[in-house]
Every structure is written in structure tokens, then in C-alpha cells.
Simulated assay, not measured.
Amino acid sequence: MSGIDYTPFAPTLPPARARALPWATVMAGSLVTIVPVVAGIPLLPPFGLLMLIAWRLLARFALRPWAAAPLGLFDDLVSGQPLGSSVLLWSLCFVVIELIEVRLVFRDFWQDWMIAAGAIAFGLCAGRLIAVPVAARVDQAVIGQIAISILLFPLATRIVAAIEAKRVQA
């Protein structure tokens, strides 16, 4: 055989762009909150948190463990939450996911979905308690937001899986 490579041409990303892609997708998810949506009750899921959890569960090494803090700060600046709330809550989610991952020998999609459901519920409830400390309670709006967020998690994993497939080619 000759030394010619007959593999099909696949466009690849430069390494710097491949490393920045997970960051950009989480930041784009956080930017969804600035889209003007008229609603009687707040049911918009935290897309930044969904993308962050999806990246953490599907591509463990795509984001460093400390990445939750600056991405949470960006989300706080964009979403209008009290400064530092997403930094703390997203970092806690990363730590808890790490602790769960150490104990599990094998994970499948259903376990990932349950882990994400717990992280989403924790993030939204604790964020509500931080944002409205006086007379704060978890009401029907937050429960609806949690339910919608949990149901949208598979969509976030599909998006992350498609991006990761392109990113790994780089």
C-alpha cells in the first residue's frame, strides 16, 4: 500500500476552540434568560445550569472542577440573581456530583437524569431561598420550574452529546 490516508475528510476544530466550546455553550445557556418572554409565572428553566450539569455528567473532563465558579458568576451577572448565589450553588452541585460519581461503579442515563434532577431541584430551591430570604417558600411556580427543567434535561444532554462528538474530532 502507498502512504496515502484514505479516511474521509472531517473538518476539525482548532484545539483552543474545542476547549472553549463547553464554556461557550454554558454561557449561551445562561444568556437565554435575557430573551424577553412574557409569562404570568416564571417557568423558564435555568438553561446555563442544565448545560453545566450535562457537560459534567457526559464529558467529565470537558470542564475543570473550578469552572463552575466563573460560569456561575457569569450567570449571576446575566440573570440578575444575587451576586455569588450561582457561584456557590453551581460549585456545590459539582462537588456533590463528584462525590456521587466516586461511589458509583457504573452509571447509565437514568442515574444521570436522577443526579441532574437532584442538582436542578437543589439549585432552584436554594436560589429561591437566597434571592428572597424574607418569607421565602418553595411555591407552585418553583415546583413547575423544577419539573420543566428536569424534563428538558435530556434535550440538554442531546445538545452536549452532539457538540462533544464534533469536539472530540478535533
Rank of each mutant, 00 (worst) to 15 (best):
Y6N: 03
Y6W: 04
T7P: 06
T7E: 07
T7D: 07
A10Q: 13
A10Y: 11
P11S: 04
P11L: 06
T12C: 14
L13A: 08
A16M: 10
R19F: 05
R19I: 00
R19K: 07
A20N: 00
L21A: 11
V26F: 00
A28F: 01
S30Y: 14
T33M: 11
V35M: 10
V35L: 11
V37R: 05
V37Y: 09
V38K: 10
I41W: 02
P45M: 00
P45R: 01
F47Y: 15
L49D: 01
L49F: 06
L50G: 11
L50A: 15
I53C: 09
A54M: 04
R56V: 12
L58C: 05
R64Y: 13
A67M: 07
A67N: 14
A67D: 14
A68H: 11
A69C: 10
G72L: 07
G80S: 13
P82T: 02
P82R: 08
P82K: 07
G84W: 07
S85Q: 06
S86E: 03
S86N: 12
V87T: 07
L88F: 10
S91E: 02
C93T: 03
V96D: 03
V96W: 13
I97W: 14
I97C: 02
E98H: 15
E98S: 13
L99S: 12
F109T: 15
M114G: 08
I115M: 14
A116E: 12
G118H: 09
G118P: 13
I120R: 12
F122N: 15
F122R: 12
G123F: 02
G123Y: 10
C125T: 10
R128V: 00
R128K: 08
L129F: 14
A131I: 01
A135R: 13
V138T: 13
V138M: 12
Q140T: 14
Q140D: 06
V142H: 13
I143P: 04
I146T: 02
I146Y: 04
A147H: 01
A147D: 02
I148F: 09
I150W: 00
L155T: 08
A156K: 03
R158N: 12
I159W: 00
A162E: 10
E164C: 13
E164S: 07
A165V: 05
K166W: 13
V168P: 04
Q169A: 15
Q169I: 12
Q169K: 13
A170K: 05
A170M: 14
